[in-house]
Amino acid sequence: MPASPAIDICDLRVDYGDFMAVNDLTLQVPAGEVFGLVGPNGAGKTSTFRVLTTLMEPTYGEVRLAGIDIAEEPEAARRVLGYMPDLAPVPSDLKLWEFLDLFADAHGLGDAATRRSRIDECLHEVDLMPQREKFCKTLSRGQTQRLVLAKTLLHRPSVLILDEPASGMDPLSRRNLRLVLRRLAEQGATVFVSSHILSELAEMCTSLCVMNKGKLLASGTVDEVRRVLGRAERVVQVGLLDREQEAGEWLRTRAGVSEAVVSRRCVRFHFTGSEEEQADLLGGLIAEKFRVTSFEEQRSTFEDILVEVAEGNQKGAQA
């Protein structure tokens, strides 16, 4: 019997007057996944997150977090939940450790010494230990995001919901965030994350889903989503030391390759195969003794898909 999903959304609908923000969304996120939620503005991401975090009552629909029905037992659901909102705010009148202690205390994380030790652990994790005694209002945007991430991790939640967690973070902090999220997933936590930086999301997530106008368009691995949305092709550029004409000819004979264009020491082509097939393609080039200097996807065509979706929305609205 398969284990119950960590996040189980069934027939979720959210309305604002006549506007339907989320339309009968059904989605399961297995435990231990880093699951991405992607969609243009107005897709229904934030409404979905607000319902998942018990901040908003849906028009109807059932949501279970780690098996807990959030409508029936909101307090129990809040114990297993860690939420980091978009543009994560912090109170201006508290020091960093005081801010974290408020939540550690509310979650009943033991006596003052135990809480202090856990707070320090989380501050270390997000690299804010030197600022421990500073006021929250003195932090930069990226530091504030990291502090709220520390708050989210404090009670070791089994379900994390992160709305644009990397916004405002510098590259180092982003890398750390990815590492933290991966480690949490390895430890069994489920991370549901939204981001507009799609390449980053693809790197961070084990699977994702795409929403538009309140509807779920596709869900699965990045490849599966590409396939479902009918845009499996991507542009690949191969750098070569020599024999680029021959390499171009060879590539044109491969399945999934189209529009191969040869230029100086480089072949650029469209590819519609899976990631495994893409790896095999690189292996084939090397096996054919082509001296490959680089092999890269030039643009995230996944991003193009979303741009097309967003543009479609705009055209629809104008029409």
Partner: peptide, 26 residues
């Protein structure tokens, strides 16, 4: 996951929100 217990409503001196304001306003 947090397995701790939170304070009962009547025990206001142990209330985390009361502590939060005790710290910031005093």
């Amino acid at each position: 996951m947090s397995g701790g217990t939170t304070c009962p409503a009547w025990k206001f001196w142990a209330n985390p929100i009361f502590h939060r304001y005790r710290r910031s306003r005093l």
